[in-house]
Design a protein around this nucleic acid. Structure first.
Length: 254
DNA sequence: ATGGTTGGAAGCCAA
């Protein structure tokens, strides 16, 4: 027995409703983390799934769909800044483990308050995950991290160095999180370059495979021990009117 | 080559 957990930035749940339904119908997904809902309310997707979500008007928004109804909301915001009202964080408890879905700030353009917000958000995330580590709570965190971990995770490292997604400060913060003892689950099973989860809508990025790997699952040690597989499913990116992201799917043993 | 495209908003912003 195993569980499949997927993460997908859908770039508007309203615009991608049928895609999400098709994805759920063709994969045996137990939990689906969604990002960029771009709306306050959440639509009826399937009678087979329970939705926990945190939305806002027009921007951001995260949801966790689950076959299991016994998920318990721990938090729908990231601690550390009472003035932060962006819907980017969802933490639930299920079966003794913590499931965390994030839509980490993009941070562009560099040199603006947006980049400061991203870095501070990552510092707050580190503090939260360090708490869970100290409490010995097994967890997995998935979502759109808006972070390119390494050169092999983008088509043009030199170009991306001048972007908030691969800026040295961004990568430093990401490594700090990893150094809590977390594992980039995808890299346990696949060391190939040119394995991407996002392709820009512009300039033929998808047909030319000019993409970046910014959607991740990170697992705490107890969950890492249970990893069965972690793959990027490129199929939905090839559908008509797709999201610019494609799902990443993680499988863990019971 | 500072463009190109998409979604939600409202008559631009974020990605």
């Amino acid at each position: 027995m195993s569980y499949k957990i997927a993460s997908w930035n859908v770039n508007s749940i309203k615009a991608r409703l049928t895609h999400v339904q098709e994805f759920l119908n063709t994969n045996q997904i137990d939990f689906l983390f969604l990002q960029e809902l771009k709306g306050e309310s959440f639509p009826d997707i399937s009678p087979d799934y329970h939705a926990t979500y945190m939305g806002q008007k027009a921007y951001n928004g995260v949801a966790i769909l689950s076959r299991q109804k016994d998920v318990r909301l721990i938090s729908n915001k990231l601690n550390g800044d009472e003035t932060d009202d962006q819907a980017r964080y969802l933490e639930v408890e299920w079966n003794g483990i913590r499931l965390i879905n994030i839509y980490l700030p993009n941070g562009n353009p560099l040199g603006t308050e947006k980049f400061d917000y991203k870095i501070k958000w990552m510092e707050r995330l580190f503090i939260r995950l360090n708490e869970l580590k100290n409490e010995r709570v097994p967890f997995l965190i998935g979502g759109d991290f808006n972070v390119i971990p390494k050169d092999e995770d983008c088509y043009d490292p030199v170009l991306w160095r001048n972007d908030a997604l691969y800026h040295p400060e961004t990568v430093k913060q990401f490594r700090k999180v990893l150094n809590l003892g977390l594992t980039d689950a995808f890299r346990v099973f696949n060391q190939n370059a040119e394995e991407y989860s996002f392709w820009d809508y512009q300039a033929g990025a998808w047909p030319r495979n000019r993409g970046i790997r910014i959607d991740h699952f990170l697992t705490s040690p107890a969950i890492t021990d249970r990893l069965i597989s972690c793959q990027i499913d490129k199929t939905p990116r090839g559908w008509d009117s797709p999201s610019d992201h494609t799902p990443i799917i993680l499988e863990i043993s019971e």
